[in-house]
Amino acid sequence: MAAEVATQQLPAHKKKKEVALLKTWKRLIRNKMAIVGLTIIALQLFMALAAPIIVGVDPNKQNLELSELPIGTEGHVLGTDNYGRDIWSRIVYGARISLLVGIGAVSLGLVGGVILGLLSGYYRRLDGIIMRFVDLMFAFPGILLAMLIIAILGTSLVNVVIAISIWSIPTCARIVRGSVLSIKKQEYIMAMKSLGASDLRIMFKHVLPNCAAPIIVFATMRMATAILSTASLSFLGLGAQPPTPEWGAMIAAGQEYMWTSPHMIVVPGIAIMLVVFAFNVVGDALRDALDQGMSLDK
């Protein structure tokens, strides 16, 4: 019975969703800032995917004779670093790393956060325990939590991803829980429940899709935080293993050369700023677009 009700609803539901998506997209690209952000993200994506095609030079190829060349040198558009490595090629390959770290950390964090959030929003009995646990994680300064995790697991990019993802669980759990609480009370969920649909089915098929909007916004903004945090951890010497061309690690290494070759920190600093900026802007615009969408649908 329950299944029948659900399948009958599905086509209409789906169509409505597609329309809503299209509307959201249209609203999004009407926002000038969002276009700037999307362009930067698209560029980063392109750099990440096509790195070997864009640059012919190995980002780790050293040439101690040609070290610390300034920006604009022939053959090295963005100059070279203290080992004579080409900074442009390191930036391009670094785009790949920052994107991977961001996506990895955010998706891992989402899985954890969504599960905790769903459980705690859906089952009142679990709510207290899970939320206390979330409070506990909140009370840790994020960077410290990451430092402890890396102290246990060891210094590597993969462990940075794990540390950052754990750090984003509490926020995500709270957001999901909030949406679940409000959706749970809506009539059709109540109706399905009384028709005997299983909890799991309701949670994943009906509640979760309805939390999609805040989750997408959170994920986009979180990409920004994740990229920044990776840089901070690298600055503390807890990130990528050398000679990985990670942007944060490039800044950390360039610090000592700041006075003689400032481009070594300026270039990766700007790269990080642009990308983080882009994700923030798009996240912001998405929220506006989705918010309006919600209110129109009502």
């Binding site: 050293q62 101690l64 080992y83 000679p243």
Partner: peptide, 26 residues
Amino acid sequence: NMGEVIQAQLKEVGIPAKIETLEWGT
């Protein structure tokens, strides 16, 4: 710094090397 240079020079002669950095205490 030394590690990065040594790793790159080993690579030049064909010895593949991977750097593992650890905190001082570890």
